[in-house]
Design a protein around this nucleic acid. Structure first.
Length: 713
DNA sequence: ATAGGGTTAG
């Protein structure tokens, strides 16, 4: 007994020293006097020891010894709580596990332990401890809430249901905290119907419950309902805070509601809300996704501390809005600040590489992912897409075969890749493998598959799978699918059949669907039907130059020169929507861009010479320029010259000047390659002994030895 | 003494 008293004195001294050294620093000498009275008989003082904040585990171990020796079991839960606060979780659990410490009040100690495991990010431990406490004591609201929150993190629905039923039985079925944890669990799994059921059953809904519903709808890809939730929250008299606002900003980013987003921005400022990294990043993201780069960049520049996610948000904004150049500039700048790009930044950079055909940079990012991050479905899909769009079908296939687990989006990307590279049979093969793997195809799978089949002339297969998509897979065809099936039929000359299909459908065809049909009419010289389709397209008032060009070409072939003039005028007037045709080529790791008749390039004179030399050699081999679509009122010689100055021809000539024979050239064009250039490049591939890959707005054309592997033009 | 928030692929 005397020994224990001595221990206790030492403990108190130790505690005082710990507190003083926390203030004064570690150099404080340890006091050696132990003249304090024995406190063993005074439970209040012992309690004070236990509630001492910041006590070291070693000190608590000495208290522990005292409690055991003095048989003060009623103080064991308090000791366990102190252990848990001091991060000595094993000791806390061991203390609680002995039967002597079981008491109705011990639940607070168990909760402290669960809470410590939660803070450490160990939800599995939370569940294990929860199961261990059950025989010892009755869980309360805090216990159930922590356990359910752990289930949400583990996405363990089965465990959650057991806990939910126990909570109900214990009378916590309507508890705000318990219900909020349940809401979070359901919304994480995308089970919003279940979440709504719980939410509607809640007698009182606080801000957290509402905001859980808001972010639940966001995560489920239902931004409109998220905004509805917010509206209802305000109507019920609950004020929003910054967490709710982050959800609203995500909704605004998703549905391009920049005005609502800006008003949220104003609301945050007016109410003096904390503009932390998360809130500001959401604002930057919302503005950038909506193309308001000025505001996004200003806010970003003003951020006192930015993390990888803030950078990623801005980079992705640029990458997704056709500003690949700026996205890559920022990607580089991010690295100079010493931040390692995270998954988000890397994927956005890959998107930008794909956009501009920057294979070298894309490959180096692939290396970075393998070295510093790890491969997952999202990264893998972005890489496959990058390789595909940079013309490397083989690299895309190799990567696809190496990825360990494949989700639907990854399969879809690979099927689309085969399609754009003219491999309809491979796309079909992948589709079968996908089904065998037990993955359920969706609308995007069928869109890619049908498009692949259509470009390879696999008409019967296309029709077969279009029907099965509707009848066996219960997927209602969307505009995209109609475009594919019409294109499939019309491309192979079955324009009447395609037209009949459209008349049998209740919904009114869109411009894109008519365009597929018209393009088939033009290629197969079905001018009568073509003119009626052209009329329908003009009635829909298209403002896309490509569409108008197609209509104009149809009229040109039909020799309806009045209509040609009229449509040309429309093309001129469509003004702002006009995107100039350009081609990009990567030569020795640097990209070069060319516009039609572009004279700004330093090597322009040499390029012209190459173009002219190629032209004359091609003619000797039998090439005849097709000038039927060019303005009818121009001189024939000028028409031919206009054709040879198309941007893809300039880009190829430039690449020939700067590479040696046998090199593979990849040209990226933003619009469709015209039929004439397509023909000309076949000849060029033979004359220059180059494999030439051209990616246009739709797909790839592989030219080699005077032939094109996508011979459906 | 417990519940809710930001970027990324087809």
């Amino acid at each position: 007994m005397h020994a224990a008293g001595l221990q206790c004195c030492m403990v108190l001294l130790q505690l005082k020293w710990e507190r003083r050294s926390a203030i004064a620093g570690p150099d404080l000498p340890i006091p050696n006097a132990m003249r304090l009275p024995a406190i063993l008989a005074d439970p209040r003082r012992l309690r004070r020891v236990l509630s001492f904040p910041g006590a070291a585990p070693a000190t608590l171990a000495r208290v522990h010894a005292v409690l055991i020796v003095s048989a003060s079991h009623h103080l064991l839960p308090g000791l366990a709580t102190a252990y848990a606060r001091a991060s000595a979780l094993d000791a806390a659990e061991a203390t609680l596990a002995i039967p002597a410490s079981a008491s109705p009040s011990s639940i607070a100690a168990w909760n402290a332990l669960l809470s410590a495991h939660t803070r450490r990010g160990a939800p599995g431990e939370v569940l294990r401890v929860f199961r261990a406490l059950l025989p010892a004591t009755r869980p309360d609201s805090t216990t159930f809430t922590l356990a359910l929150s752990a289930c949400a993190r583990l996405e363990n629905l089965a465990a959650a249901e057991v806990i939910r039923d126990r909570a109900s039985a214990a009378g916590y079925g309507k508890d705000v905290f318990v219900c909020s944890a349940l809401l979070h669990l359901y919304s994480r799994r995308g089970a919003m119907d279940d979440a709504v059921k719980v939410f509607e059953g809640m007698p009182s809904k606080d801000r957290v419950a509402w905001s859980t519903m808001v972010s639940g709808f966001i995560n489920a890809g239902r931004p409109v309902e998220a905004l509805d939730m917010y509206r209802m929250m305000r109507e019920s008299g609950v004020e929003g805070d910054e967490v709710v606002m982050v959800g609203i900003l995500q909704a605004c980013a998703a549905i391009r509601e920049v005005h609502v987003g800006a008003s949220v921005h104003g609301y945050l400022s007016r109410h003096g809300m904390r503009m932390d990294v998360v809130t500001t990043t959401s604002l930057v993201d919302m503005y950038a996704k909506n193309g308001r780069f000025d505001v996004a960049c200003r806010l970003f520049g003003l951020m006192p501390c930015k993390n990888a996610i803030s950078w990623s948000a801005l980079i992705s904004g640029f990458a997704q809005n056709g500003r690949a150049d700026k996205a890559l500039d920022l990607f580089r700048e991010m690295q100079t600040t010493g931040l390692q790009p995270d998954a988000g930044a890397v994927v956005s950079a890959l998107l930008a590489c794909a956009d501009m055909g920057l294979l070298k940079l894309g490959k180096s990012i692939h290396g970075f992912i393998l070295r510093r991050l790890e491969m997952d479905c999202i990264r893998g899909t972005a890489l496959i897409d990058m390789y595909s769009k940079c013309g490397s079908l083989v690299s895309a296939q190799m990567l696809f075969n190496r990825v360990g687990s494949r989700d639907l989006v990854l399969w879809n990307a690979m099927i689309a890749c085969c399609g754009t590279h003219g491999r309809g049979d491979d796309a079909l093969d992948l589709f079968h493998r996908l089904n065998e793997a037990g993955v359920k195809p969706d609308h995007a799978t069928f869109a890619s598959l049908l498009s692949a089949l259509s470009h390879c002339g696999l008409v019967e297969e296309g029709k077969f799978w279009f029907d099965r998509m509707i009848n066996e897979f219960s997927i209602q065809p969307s505009e995209k699918h109609y475009v594919c099936i019409v294109d499939l039929l019309a491309r192979s000359g079955r324009v009447e059949e395609a037209n009949d299909l459209l008349t049998s459908v209740q919904t009114e065809p869109t411009i894109a669907i008519w365009v597929a049909l018209l393009s088939g009419c033009l290629n197969n010289k079905k001018l009568e039907l073509g003119e009626s389709i052209a009329e329908k397209i003009l009635q829909l008032q298209p403002d896309d130059v490509g569409v108008l060009a197609l209509v104009s070409n149809l009229y040109a072939v039909a020799k309806k020169w009045d209509m040609v003039r009229e449509v040309r005028k429309l093309m001129k007037d469509s003004g702002s929507k006009k995107v100039p045709g350009y081609s990009l080529v990567e030569v020795r790791g640097t990209r070069h861009s060319f516009l039609m008749e572009d004279q700004s390039h330093p090597q322009y004179q040499e390029i012209l010479k190459v173009v002219a030399k190629l032209d004359s050699e091609m003619r000797k081999m039998g090439y005849v320029p097709k000038t039927e679509f060019v303005y009818h009122d121009l001189d024939e010689h000028v028409k031919e010259q206009l054709l040879s100055y198309h941007s893809e021809r300039l880009a190829i000539a430039f690449a020939l000047l700067n590479t040696s024979p046998g090199t593979r050239l990849v040209i990226i064009k933003n619009l469709r390659v015209c039929g004439n250039c397509h023909e000309a490049i076949k000849y060029i591939s033979k004359i220059a002994d180059r494999e030439i890959v051209v990616r246009d707005a739709k797909r790839f054309h592989h030219f080699k030895d005077g032939a094109c592997s996508c011979g459906d033009y």
